[in-house]
Every structure is written in C-alpha cells, then in structure tokens.
C-alpha cells in the first residue's frame, strides 16, 4: 500500500456557478458521500476536496478562493493533476428512514452524493439549500431531481425565500419528525443547525472542515478537540459534537495557533 499521489486527467470541467466549477477526473474512486480526496498541484500545494462523483470516475466541486483554487481554475480539460484518497468517514445512512439535509454555499458539494444515495435507498428526504444569491446557488437543479421537497434560501432573496437555512429548518422540525439531519456549510451555520437539532431532539451528522496536512490521521493538524477531522470525520454526529467545545468556536491555523472560528474562516477565504 502506498499513499503518494497518483496522476489523473481532467476529463470535463463544468461551470456550476460564477465562482464554482466541477472537475471530472478519469480516476476510479469508490467513496461514500462526505468522503474526500487530496488534490495535488505540483509546486503549489495539496488540499482536501469533497467528492461530488465516485465510481469509475470521480469529481470534485471547487469554489475559487485562494492560491490553490485559482491555480486549479487555470487548468483545462486534458490537463493532469495529482490525487490520493478517498479519506474520511463519510455520512452514515444506516437506520435512517426519513431525512433532512441542510446545505449552505459550497457546502452543497458533499450533499449532492448524499442526496443521490438517499434517493437510491428510497429514503424520504427534505433538502434545504442556502446561497448568497440565485447565481451562487449550487446544485439546485441536480438536488431537485432527488427530492420533491427542496427549499432554497438566498441572502438577498433573489431566489425563493430570503434569509438563512435555519428558518425553513425550524419550520420543518416543528411539524415533522426526521431520523437524521445532515448538514454541510459554514461552521457558524452548522452550529445553529446543531442547536436547532438539539432543541427538537433530532440526531444530526455535520460535515466539518479544518486545515489539513496528512489526511491519514497522524499529523494532528486538523484537530477538532480530541477528534481528527481527516480520520474521525469529516462527518461528526450529535454525540461527538456535544462533547466538543471547539465546534463552532475555535480552530487551528496552519501554524497550529488556536483562534476563534471567525478568524479561521477569514483566513480560509485567502
């Protein structure tokens, strides 16, 4: 067994929103929804990305933000890229008969495979997808194909309901009983989702993010309290989150300094 990056060719690039593209790679990867791969651009960096397709070929969906993603966006179909994975635990759908999914921004990326998986298993699922604007709303049409119950919120009201994902979530939790709420998005949003789930006594599984190096559970860069996001996560359940003070409050920078989650989120935007 070796865990060094292999090379893959970019087969197809799709522009999902003005700032988000999907890259389909001719690289086989059997993965669960929520698992991720490490993408390597030689001479630049290596970063974790959730998988938005798996099987004989895999795909990642990326928002253009910092140095790495800017370099990735310069690549064209036919170009090569380094890849290793899949890593992490992924979402667990066992014993779930009725589900709710909450996604915010590019947090819709890991949700896509999950929604498709739940549909395949015939699990009734409500999906709430939040975005800043109509144009930045990721995977709305593909998610709509997986459920009759899709709610969209936008910060500016340019598409469907104006406001945050928590408003429709609260309405749903008020009237319906879910076996699990799955979520991915900014951690401030996920913290609110968690608090609502606790209030309505619904278990949740949330996909979190920390700065990552090894992806294999040894370097400790991605610690979330006592958990390793790369190995124990990136998906954490209610019980784990309940005993993790750092969730929604603190994270380590690249140097290992413990900072408030807001400062971490701002640093991640660079």
């Amino acid at each position: 067994m070796t865990e060094t990056p292999e090379t893959a060719t970019i087969k197809k690039i799709s522009q999902e929103t003005p700032s988000i593209r999907s890259f389909r790679l001719d690289f086989p990867m059997q993965a669960k929804p929520g698992q991720f791969a490490m993408l390597w651009l030689p001479g630049i960096d290596e970063k974790p990305f959730t998988l938005t397709a798996e099987g004989k070929e895999c795909a990642v969906t990326v928002q253009e933000k910092g140095k790495f993603t800017k370099a990735l966006f310069k690549l064209k179909e036919g170009d090569k890229i380094g890849i290793r994975g899949p890593y992490g635990n992924g979402f667990s759908t066992s014993r779930v008969k009725k589900a709710c999914i909450v996604a915010g921004g590019c947090g819709a990326a890991p949700i896509l495979l999950l929604a498709e998986e739940l549909q395949k298993q015939g699990i009734k699922t409500a999906i709430i997808n939040g975005a800043r604007t109509e144009k930045e709303c990721l995977f709305a049409e593909r998610l709509r194909k997986t459920t009759h119950d899709l709610y969209i919120t936008t910060d500016d009201g340019s598409l469907e309901e104006q406001g945050f994902v928590t408003a429709p979530l609260q309405r749903l939790l008020e009237k319906e009983k879910f076996d699990c709420v799955f979520g991915c998005g900014p951690e401030a949003m996920l913290k609110k989702v968690f608090e609502l789930c606790e209030k309505y006594k619904v278990p949740c599984q949330l996909n979190l993010e920390r700065y990552m190096r090894c992806a294999t559970g040894i370097c400790g860069s991605c610690v979330l309290g006592k958990w390793l996001v790369c190995k124990d996560g990136p998906v954490f359940n209610s019980k784990q989150l309940r005993e993790t003070e750092e969730f929604g409050s603190k994270a380590l920078l690249k140097c290992g300094k413990d900072v408030p989650i807001k400062e971490f989120a701002e640093w991640r935007q660079q």
Binding site: M1, T2, I44, D45, E46, R213, S221
Partner: peptide, 21 residues
C-alpha cells in the same frame, strides 16, 4: 506547503517544516 507527509512502500516521509504557534 503540502504535500508534507506521505506514506510510501516501507514507511513515511515528511517535511512539515516545524510549524509552531
């Protein structure tokens, strides 16, 4: 920058570069 830690056939190799807070 990454890659900093990799497993190869008979062990690991790392150059994390002594990050420190």
């Amino acid at each position: 920058a990454n890659p900093t830690i990799l497993e190869w056939e008979h062990g690991l190799i790392n150059a994390v570069g002594l990050p420190s807070p």
